[in-house]
Amino acid sequence: MTPVLEVKDVTVRFGGVIAVDKASVSIEAGELIGFVGPNGAGKTTLMRVITGIVKPQQGSVTLEGKDLTGLSINQRVRAGLALAQQIVQPLRGMTVLNNVALACGTAKTANPFKAIKSFDKRAERATALALLTRVGLQDVADNEPSKLPLGYLKRLEVARALALKPRLLLLDEPLAGLNQSEASSLADLIKTLNHDGLSILLIEHNLREVMRVCPKVYVQDLGKSLAFGEAKKIMSRPDVIAAYLGKG
């Protein structure tokens, strides 16, 4: 079977800094992979390579066997990727509900000629409200994002990504900024989504939750792929522990 995602030998340099160094990882359909590594390991950068925000100097990314090289961000999203970013970016001029509803309308927003002929937003708003309820944001649906705390905006990112009905969901530290109970309930949701068949790549520093929900982990250190496999086994490996504690 072709993997959902295959990242091969990706290298990204920012000036003199090598952010990602020949990293490779592959995700089978239906898997939930925890993507861990110390600060500056190049996790976000690799995620951005996958979505097309950052162009790698080398390497390739394929989604369900389709080479993504040369595709723009929006084309990759339409090919089945969705991203909840580490640094939250709500559309500040519209309500929380509309942020998600717009993402629900990908069929209507494919091009301006389709969009100009479409007026009804009820179905998308209903779906959006259901998604917001799933992440626990139903009570702030009509608020403007600017007034909400970070923990809410993190969940808004997740809801908006889900609205795209992705084949692969990419989450970059969705639990950061959430309190313990919010974090574990969102982690539960991630687990449920995966049980329902969604493939997920989850970058997360909250190792307790990662160990709780992710059967497998992928570890990156100094931009290099360090380990991949069963979560418990990998996280007890001496080299992985050393990477986390910092060498020296």
């Binding site: 925000i53 961000i73 929006n74 970016q89 709500p90 559309l91 500040r92 993402a103 990908t106 927003t109």
Partner: peptide
């Protein structure tokens, strides 16, 4: 509002 976000939602 934000071009980058628009791209991330497939626009």
């Amino acid at each position: 509002d934000n071009e980058d976000v628009s791209r991330v939602i497939g626009i």
